[in-house]
């Protein structure tokens, strides 16, 4: 397979969906109801990514106590609720994950 043909193809199919709506922004008046819906886009998409990345591993549910992601996720969630601060959330989430990871791998 030609690597550069692949890259060109990927470039087209990733760019076009990102570009078309923005390119047509002047031609469409966005109805108020859709505008309302768009406010929910970041919450919806990012939360869906969070759920799958932390609780699904190798195509399987991983809700066991041996899933270190679970501890990182809960710690990050609580920190974010209390502090509303992204950087503190990342630091606490990563530290708790690392501790959980080490403990779990030793059991």
């Amino acid at each position: 397979m030609n690597e550069w043909v692949l890259i060109l193809g990927m470039m087209l199919v990733t760019f076009i969906p990102r570009f078309l709506p923005m390119a047509m922004a002047d031609r469409f008046r966005i109805p108020a109801i859709l505008r309302k819906a768009l406010e929910f886009v970041p919450i919806a998409v990012l939360t869906a990514i969070i759920a799958q990345a932390s609780l699904i591993h190798n195509g399987e549910f991983d809700l066991s106590f041996a899933n270190a992601y679970l501890y990182g996720l809960v710690a990050a969630f609580v920190t974010a609720l209390i502090t509303k601060h992204m950087f503190k959330t990342i630091v606490v989430g990563l530290v708790v994950y690392a501790i959980a990871f080490v403990i779990i791998s030793k059991i």
């Binding site: 970041p42 919450i43 990012l46 939360t47 990514i49 969070i50 990345a53 932390s54 270190a68 992601y69 990182g72 996720l73 990050a76 969630f77 920190t79 974010a80 609720l81 509303k84 601060h85 992204m86 950087f87 503190k88 959330t89 990342i90 606490v92 989430g93 990563l94 994950y97």
Partner: peptide, 12 residues
């Protein structure tokens, strides 16, 4: 995991 906790910090 870094991405997970960063997105939590954004969404919450």
């Amino acid at each position: 995991i870094a991405m997970v906790v960063a997105f939590v910090g954004i969404v919450v």
